[in-house]
Amino acid sequence: MPREIEILGAFVPGLLIVGLLAAVVQVGLDWLCAHYNIYRHVWHRSLFRVCMFVCAWGGLSLILLH
């Protein structure tokens, strides 16, 4: 992945943009999990949520890398 992405002529760290995108994805996933009551089957909800965020951030970064 390019370390910096050019937006309107300014160089922005790629991870920052991907992180913000991941936050958006996270909000969606979180809503889905709550709506279908998936959290009921999870032992440590917060940890689960953190993992989801890490997966989203890492996955999106991987997509950008290729």
Partner: peptide, 8 residues
């Protein structure tokens, strides 16, 4: 803003 069933 928390995970869990509070939204329900």
């Amino acid at each position: 803003f928390e995970a869990g069933d509070i939204r329900l």
